[in-house]
């Protein structure tokens, strides 16, 4: 490596004198005859400016850029964890609200059931009373009607017997018989027994 560098250095030195000699024609048309990388005459220049720019860059990166980016990143991490915690809290709250809603719903349902049962019992009571009342009335009316029917039937019976006796007596009289009232009644009753039953 050292010998190579020496060779390069001699080449570069030759070139250097050449380029100084032809410095009037310096410009775009210049071409590299050797490796420009091994031109030792430019090393000092490159190293000098490189060290300056590296120092500036290091100062900027270490003092300004990295603390700032680090702060932004940790802020974001904090914001994300904060948001996650808030979200967790909200989720808990939502769960609580849901439980409360469910409970209210169940309560309302139970209340409604209770009211329905109470109403039903009341209605049943009223209904029972009304039915009993109606039954009693119906029974009273029925017995009354039965009484009347019986009365009517009885009266109709006796009327028919009177008519039959009268007719029988008249008939006997018309045929010229003696009218034995007792015998006629007996006969009519005997006949009527079969008819009026």
């Amino acid at each position: 490596m050292i010998s190579l560098l020496e060779v390069a250095a001699t080449v570069a030195a030759d070139e250097y004198t050449e380029s100084v000699a032809s410095s009037v024609a310096y410009g775009e048309s210049e071409t590299a005859t050797g490796l420009p990388q091994l031109d030792l005459s430019t090393f000092g220049n490159q190293i000098f400016w490189l060290i300056i720019s590296l120092l500036v860059l290091y100062w900027v990166v270490a003092k300004i850029a990295l603390p700032r980016i680090g702060a932004v990143l940790s802020d974001r991490q904090g914001a994300i964890t904060g948001d996650l915690m808030a979200a967790e809290e909200f989720k808990l709250k939502a769960k609580e609200a849901e439980a409360a809603y469910d409970k209210a719903l169940a309560d309302a349902r139970a209340e409604a059931g209770k009211i329905v049962a109470a109403n039903r019992a009341e209605i049943q009571k009223d209904l029972d009373a009304a039915i009993a009342h109606a039954d009693a009335e119906i029974a009273a009316r029925a017995s009354e009607s039965e009484g009347r029917i019986r009365q009517i039937r009885d009266s109709a019976d006796s009327d028919a017997r009177d008519v039959a006796r009268d007719v029988a007596a008249e008939l006997v009289r018309a045929f010229g018989g003696t009218t034995d009232q007792a015998a006629i009644d007996q006969a009519v009753d005997r006949r009527m027994k079969g008819v009026l039953q």
Binding site: L4, V7, V11, A32, T33, G34, L35, L38
Partner: peptide
């Protein structure tokens, strides 16, 4: 290769 080509 580069050294052989350009520097030697």
């Amino acid at each position: 290769a580069l050294l052989l080509m350009f520097a030697v």
